[in-house]
Design a protein around this nucleic acid. Structure first.
Lengths: 185, 185
DNA sequence: GGCCTGATGTGATACAGGTCACAATAAATA
DNA sequence: TATTTATTGTGACCTGTATCACATCAGGCC
């Protein structure tokens, strides 16, 4: 739970009492490797903060091909945000690459948390803003970069993930075939 | 200015007095076609709300090739968000495809506006959240779709822009060459 | 230990889309 | 009105990646 506090305090500071109140909105949960946190067609009523482990968020297209939107390891937030914010059915899948421990917060919980603590609303705003910028960067690398450049960029940006994620999945994140990535590596 | 109020009130409601206070944070500005609102290397101290007109936000790579991150017409917000949020030098360009009127707000202004009106912070949070989801969707269409599919999707999503933006620029947005787009149309 | 499944490498071949080149309008601007 | 400067189309050719097909090797599990 301390991870959450350290994480939040990178942006806003909290008193002891405030943090106790904040953390009451979260529930700790454990998932084994291969378990789903969200499945297409199901609900996505929770957002997850990863305490330990590694998950992948992905879309499976009509031909059964997966495209990975995000990996999330320690200190990352993840959910099917479209489904979460709009309280709609999930179109994405989220499952564990490793045994994973998360803190879970419901949509309503998050709304109440933000209403009660403007600081936390500020925190989520800053997070959302930097997430937006990160996605813009990724779009640019898809528009501008070659497969090799995107791979190099990924290694720079997420050195810790490169040797933790199988190449097949890295390929599904980068938008390259497994075989092509293998020829680059 | 009424456009701004209508736009905000889709998410939070404001009293007359509140709106008067809110709008004092904005300045109206006019730009002619081809004028730059932001240039690479310059500053991006302002965020713009488009009242009238059309702009493009783009990145120019080392070979001089442009990649369009965003078009923004009436009721859209736009800036180089990386530079804006981090108070850093711009890496993107923003210029006018048509004569354009905007409401401009500075970074500091926006921070004070959010601090003073939690409602407005909530507004910006919701906007950022849906922006994030929209970029995820675009990433998926870059990962999954063929050029023709992306074009079809764009027409569905932004029917009003298709005949307002030259095909050359649409191609730079979709990540296809001008020639290929022409053969699809 | 032995078996199965997932991860990775590599060759052969196919194709979507890029690049280059030229032409014809349409639209700004002097 | 005249003169550039954008915009769009289209042919010819090239190339980065996808696909398909095997082969190998490591790790988890019975």
């Amino acid at each position: 739970m301390d991870e959450l506090r350290r994480h939040i305090e990178k942006i806003v500071s909290l008193t002891e009492d405030e943090f106790i109140a904040v953390k009451s909105f979260f529930t700790e949960k454990q998932f084994k490797k291969h378990r789903f946190l969200i499945q297409e067609g199901g609900n996505a009523t929770n957002e997850f903060f990863i305490l330990k482990g590694l998950v992948k968020l992905y879309y499976t297209n009509a031909e059964g091909k997966d495209h990975i939107l995000q990996f999330a390891a320690e200190d990352w937030w993840v959910t099917d945000y479209n489904a979460f914010f709009n309280q709609a059915a999930a179109t994405l899948n989220l499952d564990c690459l490793e045994d994973t421990t998360v803190l879970s917060i419901s949509f309503d919980g998050r709304e109440r948390l933000c209403a009660e603590f403007p600081k936390m609303q500020y925190f989520f705003l800053k997070k959302s803003n930097s997430g937006y910028v990160a996605l813009q960067r990724r779009i640019l690398s898809l528009l501008d970069g070659t497969a090799a450049e995107r791979y190099a960029q990924f290694r720079l940006l997420y050195p810790g993930l490169v040797n933790r994620v199988p190449k097949t999945l890295l390929a599904a994140y980068l938008g390259v075939s497994r075989e092509t990535l293998s020829r680059l590596a």
